[in-house]
Write a protein that binds this DNA or RNA. Structure first.
Lengths: 159, 159
DNA sequence: TTCCAGAGTATTGTATACAATTAAATTGCC
DNA sequence: GGCAATTTAATTGTATACAATACTCTGGAA
């Protein structure tokens, strides 16, 4: 039996990122409380403010989320008056997500609020860019590794 | 009305981290498929392998999770034979989480599998340390900001 | 034209997260 | 010793995530 080194939680990059992600989630939840948006709802709105209308599929591509997550999320956004969900007339399979007038009207207010709260973080653009660049590398590695045989082996292969 | 800059999803550090966190989750889910552990279950086991037995509260401190998340997670780990949940006799409020013999026996196998899969990521210790250091800074900022008045204002204050 | 493979969305089932509440046990304080 | 405040888990309710499945629609091939 080869010697195996212990895996310590506090040394794991995955946990640092997992923990940071949860803190960001909480941060935006608080920052957006005046608008009643959760973090995932907020990033969906960001994409729509850039590009609406979009199909569920297009939105999912940008957010890296599938219809299993988006359908209920979008129904909640619709109920709260941010978007409308309309079957495309040219292709009945698609559902187009449109912004409501309220969403368009509140866009700059949200942008401004986010800007204010982000200022509190006190990070320079340089620091942010540097982190994002490193994260891109990590994410690319994770995507590549997902195709590796060691990882894609089925459970049964191990028994 | 002051001019407001648009908030673009692809420029948001939060989304980079959110996305990376999901990819890590998927990576570990695959890597740990032979053991049937999810990522949150895995990090719970990591802490227990370091320090078992622990109370739910102590485990929650390490993982930054509360009993609302941990109670069902630990029940699933118990059903799958990794841990036992035992009321403390000295303080009946507490539930002690012990490792089973299976968990102790499989520890090195899991460590080894994780080691193999992490090698595929091809990151040097230096790169990992550097990222983790930056993440600590971000997380500290997020913690501080959470105490700020701008953030802690109640929804009603805005209406 | 009919049939069917594939695309797009919704649904189901399982597992997190977390705020808020509940319930039980313990501690402090008189 | 008695009781309010606190501590600890569990529970409840809401919102993600995502794999797997179901369902509908579309476009193309026979």
């Amino acid at each position: 039996m080869p010697k195996v080194s212990p895996v310590l939680l506090d040394e794991q990059l995955c946990f640092s990122i997992y923990s940071a992600s949860k803190k960001f989630n909480h941060f935006y939840q608080s920052a957006l409380a005046p608008f009643g948006l959760t973090y995932p709802q907020y990033i969906a709105m960001l994409v729509l403010w850039e590009d609406a209308p979009l199909t569920v599929h297009q939105l999912g591509d940008r957010l890296e989320l599938d219809s299993g997550t988006l359908t209920p999320l979008l129904k909640r956004l619709e109920k709260q008056g941010w978007v409308t969900r309309v079957r495309s007339r040219t292709d009945e399979r698609q559902v187009l997500i449109h912004l409501t007038e309220m969403a368009t009207a509140k866009r700059d207010e949200v942008y401004q609020r986010i800007g204010q709260c982000q200022t509190l973080l006190g990070m320079t653009n340089k620091e942010i860019d540097s982190m994002m660049t490193e994260l891109v590398t990590v994410k690319e590695q994770l995507d590549h590794v997902s195709d590796n045989r060691l990882i894609t082996k089925k459970v049964d292969d191990f028994d």
